[in-house]
């Protein structure tokens, strides 16, 4: 058994003294393999979380762990290291993909979305809105898609999502339930710029469904990297609003 595919490094664990068990996201889905000498000085830069590789997996039979080798295509980890927020986004995305996606099941939308996010990780203002859009795609691919199909007309627009059903509701439909609904930022459904407060709202929205449907169903909490990102961003937004007020 053998394949050659692009891959994204999601997680690594030391195996013995010099090898790594690597988790990659590939067009074939989440895939694990043994990177021989992966912890060595020569290969350490390659197997950093978030890096995009040309990966090669080889095993005697399909159900074996197999051996993985790779060649660096885009050093997303090195590009993200300089800025704390970018690094947090990279960690959150990789932790979500590693924790949410099933092993060896194709997830083309999640793969393409994460590839896009990591390829542009160093573009200012790109990564955070892209993470939010990717989380919507991840939910959809895992079978917990949010329903943005409700029709809105005239001055009415989709503005909230029901935390119970995941269905979007319009401003007029929200009525007295508005306090119980999750705000739906416009950039998730239209091609409009995302402000910081929109991104925080989007992370709250997707975080609710990821925690309840994806991780909650497995009796796991939302990965600390993702929970920490939302907490820090919402705290910094609150501080900004307090200073402005």
């Amino acid at each position: 058994m053998e394949w050659e595919q692009p891959g994204i490094v999601l997680d690594t664990h030391l195996h013995g003294e010099g090898d790594l068990v690597v988790t990659l996201l590939t067009p074939r889905g989440l895939w694990k393999g043994l990177a021989k000498g992966g912890a060595s000085r020569k290969q350490a830069a390659l197997w950093q979380r978030g890096n995009i590789l040309a990966a090669r997996w080889i095993a005697r039979t399909a159900d074996q762990l197999g051996a993985i080798t790779g060649e660096l295509v885009r050093p997303a980890a090195a590009l993200a290291m300089a800025a704390p927020e970018t690094l947090e986004i990279l960690n959150a995305a990789c932790a979500l993909a590693a924790g949410a996606l099933p092993e060896r099941e194709e997830a083309p939308e999640s793969f393409a979305g994460l590839l896009r996010l990591l390829a542009g990780i160093d573009i200012p203002g790109f990564a955070l809105p892209e993470l939010c859009r990717w989380e919507v795609a991840l939910l959809r691919e895992l079978g917990f898609g949010l329903d943005f199909s409700s029709s809105a007309g005239g001055n009415d627009r989709l503005a909230y999502v029901s935390p119970r059903t995941g269905r979007a509701v319009t401003l007029s439909e929200a009525g007295e339930w508005v306090d119980r609904l999750l705000p739906l930022p416009a950039f998730l459904i239209e091609d409009v710029p995302a402000r910081p407060e929109d991104c925080v709202a989007a992370l709250r929205l997707t975080g609710h469904f990821l925690a309840r449907d994806v991780f909650g169903a497995r009796h796991k909490p939302l990965p600390p990297a993702r929970a920490g990102l939302y907490e820090r961003l919402s705290r910094s937004l609150e501080e900004k609003q307090t200073h402005a007020g």
């Binding site: 830069a45 390659l46 950093q48 890096n51 660096l72 885009r74 050093p75 980890a77 090195a78 590009l79 290291m81 300089a82």
Partner: peptide
């Protein structure tokens, strides 16, 4: 040099 090191060196 690997691409990551080159990128950080340049930056």
């Amino acid at each position: 040099l690997d691409e990551g090191t080159l990128a950080t060196a340049l930056r």
